[in-house]
């Protein structure tokens, strides 16, 4: 599916690119390729839609979005696509997924809400309850970050 060259470029840009004038020349030196090759592989990966987002990842706590909550909703299956798409349009929601319920866990729609404080998170959830008529949900505030990192793809392939 991916060529070795593509995997090599991904293995570098999945990390942190150097903040210098010619970062792609440095990346090229790391993987033994010309700057122009790195650029053309990157452009082609982007064009093929293989890079979901390319750019800076911020720490929310430091950029003002201090509160976030995962809300798990129990939505009637016959309405779930409609509700999922409508919730997805909300500015405060960054992620919205359908997942199969489990016998121990009845929820089937998951949203990540970001706001400036916890009260605002509650307000946003309450507004969604009113709008969508979904009665059963649970708000899963995070109490502690136990791990946060980026996935390392193709780690074993280029030692």
């Amino acid at each position: 599916m991916l060529t070795d060259l593509e995997k090599k470029v991904i293995s570098v840009i999945q990390g942190d690119i150097p903040v210098i004038r010619r970062p792609y020349r440095d990346i090229g030196e790391m993987i033994g390729e010309e700057e122009q090759i790195v650029l053309s592989v990157l452009r082609s990966l982007a064009e093929k839609g293989l890079i979901r987002r390319y750019g800076a990842t911020l720490r929310h706590q430091k950029s003002g979005f201090t509160a976030n909550v995962m809300v798990a909703w129990q939505v009637d299956e016959d309405r779930i696509h409609e509700v999922g798409r409508e919730m997805a349009e909300h500015e405060a929601i960054s992620h919205c997924y359908r997942r199969n319920p489990d016998e121990k866990w009845p929820y089937n729609l998951y949203t990540m809400i970001h706001a400036h404080d916890r009260d605002s998170c509650h307000d946003i959830a309450e507004a969604l309850v009113q709008k969508e008529g979904v009665q059963h949900y649970t708000m899963l505030f995070s109490e502690k970050e136990l791990k946060k990192t980026s996935m390392v793809y193709f780690e074993d392939e280029f030692e």
């Binding site: 390319y54 911020l58 793809y153």
Partner: peptide, 24 residues
Amino acid sequence: VRRLRKNGIIRRIGGNFSPEKLGY
């Protein structure tokens, strides 16, 4: 950008991937 990264406001600059598109 260097200062924002040093301050920790920028966690990293790079690519973010959908695991499924890379075969994961």
